[in-house]
């Protein structure tokens, strides 16, 4: 991902759709994820399942690779709905769209809807992520 393909907060408006990104959730990524989160559940290993938050994390990665947010931006809220299980080796496609943007009186908020589908086109996860951005006018003095 080059800097050219990143979008700045000022360029975005409600309804803006970021280019979709696809990933293969391989065994190795799932293993690293389970180790990082200290999750020893046999459920994932026995059925080669991916934890839904691993899927959500990649959806967030797809979004963060396409947007430039100023230092001090805070991820304040997260909604997620798990619509279907994801298995090791599945190819997931992560899409995101700006659903709300407030930029007035020093208040800068942005909400983005995320959708993840699998290789069959089935939606496996949806959600909404909320950011609060710093007031750049205050920061710059």
């Amino acid at each position: 991902m080059t800097e050219k393909s990143r979008f700045d907060f000022s360029q975005l408006s409600p309804g803006f759709e970021f280019p979709a990104e696809s990933y293969i959730l391989d065994e190795s990524t799932i293993k690293d994820y389970l180790q990082a989160t200290g999750d020893n559940s046999n459920l994932y290993r026995q059925r080669s399942l991916a934890p839904p938050l691993a899927v959500a994390a990649l959806a967030m990665a797809a979004l963060s690779e396409k947007i430039t947010l100023p230092p001090g931006t805070i991820h304040v809220s997260q909604e997620l709905v798990f619509c279907g299980m994801v298995f090791a080796g599945d190819r997931i496609t992560c899409s995101s769209k700006v659903s709300r943007k407030v930029d007035r009186g020093g208040l800068r908020l942005m909400s983005t809807d995320i959708t993840v589908t699998n290789q069959d086109g089935k939606t496996v996860l949806t959600g909404k992520v909320g950011f609060v951005l710093p007031d750049m006018e205050k920061i710059s003095g």
Binding site: D39, L43, P51, P52, A57, E79, F82, G84, M85
Partner: peptide
């Protein structure tokens, strides 16, 4: 947030993976 999901998986198993919803 993965820790929260882990607690839910520990209790609800595949029900959580198939139909869970979070708002935090």
């Amino acid at each position: 947030l993965a820790y929260v999901s882990q607690m839910m998986t520990d209790v609800f198993g595949e029900n959580w993976l198939e139909s869970g919803e979070l708002n935090v």
